[in-house]
Design a protein around this nucleic acid. Structure first.
Length: 563
DNA sequence: GTTCGAGGCGCC
DNA sequence: AAAAGGCGCCTCGAAC
């Protein structure tokens, strides 16, 4: 059963909802006002139906505000983006006759707001319920005729579950204690400036820097001015980056590095950031599922996926609640060993730290080397220590290393690669092709060839990493989607708050890490659920292949206590 | 006045 | 002396 939602084809501003059976036949049609959507949804929610709509971020927020959570959906915009590009469904009508209509920009505004603000000139391409149903049929056809319907179905379900979770997490927000943060800022920077300008401690450091460089008017925020001043002081630097400054033997480096650190804190996560993103003790960033080509999420505003370790102690559970923080240890190498069926590499990770496993198996001598070698393999390192370790890795794990090498070669040739579940990389752009073309021209110069070679290698590193990063993102989505279902079936603690029924809920997701905010009494249940969800995700994706997805789980009061 | 690339740095 | 994948976002400063 599906519930297909879109605009009404005639009645302006109204919506139309189709009840559709599994053969995609319309059983019933309901016309409704946007304001009625929560009520209508509430009536239907008990049915085991899957909602189908163009964009979860458009409809789901108003349902959440009405206290309604839905179980499952298909976000056709997200699933279209996967299907039209996937190598598995490349011959489908959806892919070959794509008119770009579903290539919409990410919309985070909500439908009800948009209607009230832009009622007069809503864009002409708003999708009717018929459009939505037609797209659902097209996608079904593409999946069924694809080279691997099972994988695609899993990927599309996980992607859509992610869309629900993203909206729910924005709605619920990440518990964030503004007082703790304010105290940290004041301690580090000095009191908040009343009328702009630098906080005390930054200003003090700036004065020290100017004195030490004998540059009375220097603005240390200007990289150009700073570089000039450093050179004038006789320092041999080509940039003002941290790693380069650290190597200098000059009294200015200490205040300068300190200045940069504090300045970063102020501009990225200072008082202005707090004013903009923290409301009622919650951080409400916009998550953008599928926002990265590899399938990772992005965020818009607030920089949630770059939340510095420095400020994590301000992420504090409510009174009587806990944070369960879980991250997947060495996720990418584990995913690679499973997708390449590299039994040797998989066994190195069974029940333990994968990097230590490499040491125990005699592949490398230290854990640090194991990590360096592995990152080199995943990113395509060609120089330095990490590249030197590659032959050892290659010998020990030929299947795994062979897989990323093949992906790199495909990319260098301009080919397309795919993740385990079938998300495919974009083809090279026209500029890339032109450069390669030019290099094979009879009168191409050595510079042309060098440029072509370098760009080809660059793309090879991208495709090499794409298959691993993208497949790891798929595992993470499966993990989180499974966890969400498990959390929904946990009992409700007697801690109902206005914003929550007392049920554990996801509050944060960062690539290979999830955080659940839970009543204290249920923290152990959540811990168990997180582990079980990881096991399920591994089985869903890799069946019986013996691979462990080890988790580090911490039950804490604030985020800084994890790890 | 806005826009956009560069430099820089935070996260995975 | 920067390298090796994916991002977002801040400031500066030139270009429009």
């Amino acid at each position: 059963m599906y519930l297909v939602l879109g605009r009404h084809p005639q009645a302006d501003g109204r919506l139309q909802l189709f009840d559709v059976d599994d053969s995609l036949t319309v059983l019933a049609s309901t016309e409704l006002d946007p304001a009625e959507l929560p009520a209508v949804t509430a009536l239907r929610a008990p049915a085991a139906a899957r909602w189908v709509w163009a964009n979860t971020a458009e409809w789901y927020p108003m349902l959440l505000r009405a206290g309604i959570r839905i179980d499952r959906c298909i976000d056709l915009r997200l699933t279209h983006a996967i299907l039209r590009r996937s190598e598995l469904s490349a011959r489908s009508k959806l892919a070959t006759a794509d008119d770009g209509r579903w290539d919409m920009p990410v919309v985070v505004e909500e439908a009800d707001q948009k209607l009230s603000l832009f009622d007069a000139d809503r864009s002409a391409d708003e999708l009717t319920s018929d459009d939505v149903l037609q797209e659902l049929r097209l996608q079904h056809e593409a999946i069924e005729e694809s080279l691997d319907p099972r994988r695609l179905k899993l990927l599309l379900a996980a992607e859509s579950a992610g869309a629900l979770i993203a909206v729910e997490m924005k709605h619920d927000g990440l518990p964030f204690n503004a007082d703790v943060h304010h105290k940290q800022l004041t301690l580090a920077l000095g009191p908040r400036p009343q009328f702009g300008g630098r906080p005390e401690k930054l200003e003090h450091l700036a004065r020290q820097i100017r004195a030490l460089l004998d540059a009375p008017r220097l603005n240390p925020d200007s990289a150009i001015e700073l570089l000039r001043a450093l050179k004038r002081a006789g320092l041999d630097v080509s940039t003002t980056r941290q790693w380069e400054l650290e190597r200098l033997e000059h009294p200015v480096t200490t205040p300068l590095l300190e200045y940069k650190k504090l300045s970063r804190l102020l501009t990225a996560n200072g008082w202005a950031w707090m004013d903009a993103w923290i409301r009622d003790g919650r951080f409400h960033p916009d998550y953008v599922p599928g926002g990265v080509v590899t399938g990772r999420w992005a965020t818009r505003g607030g920089g949630a996926l770059q939340l510095p370790k420095q400020i994590r102690s301000a992420v504090v559970a409510d009174q009587g609640w806990k944070l369960v923080v879980a991250d997947a240890a060495q996720l990418e190498p584990r995913v690679l060993s499973a997708m390449s069926h590299d039994a040797a590499m998989a066994s190195a990770s069974l029940g333990k730290d994968l990097y230590q496993g490499l040491v125990d198996n005699g592949v490398v001598d230290t854990r640090a080397h194991a990590k360096l070698a592995m990152l080199g393999a995943l990113y395509g390192s060609t120089t330095g220590e990490s590249a030197q370790l590659m032959p050892r890795l290659q010998r020990a794990y030929p299947a795994a290393i062979g897989m990323v090498e093949t992906a790199a070669q495909t990319g260098e040739r301009g080919g397309i690669v795919s993740t385990w579940l079938g998300r495919s990389s974009p083809p090279p752009g026209s500029g890339w092709n032109q450069v390669q073309q030019k290099a094979s021209d009879p009168d191409a110069g050595p510079a042309d060839e060098r440029r072509a070679r370098s760009q080809a290698r660059e793309r090879g590193r991208f495709t090499r990493n794409f298959i691993v990063q993208g497949s790891a993102a798929e595992w993470a989505l499966c993990w989180m989607a499974n966890l969400r279902q498990r959390l929904a079936s946990l009992p409700t603690a007697d801690l109902a708050a206005p914003w929550n029924s007392g049920r554990p809920h996801l509050v944060f997701f960062m690539h290979d890490e999830v955080m659940v905010h839970t009543p204290e009494d249920l923290a152990e249940d959540v811990h168990t659920a997180v582990l079980a969800a990881a096991r399920d995700a591994g089985r869903l994706m890799f069946g019986t292949f013996p691979i462990d997805f080890a988790l580090q789980v911490a039950v804490v009061d604030n985020y800084a206590q994890a790890k």
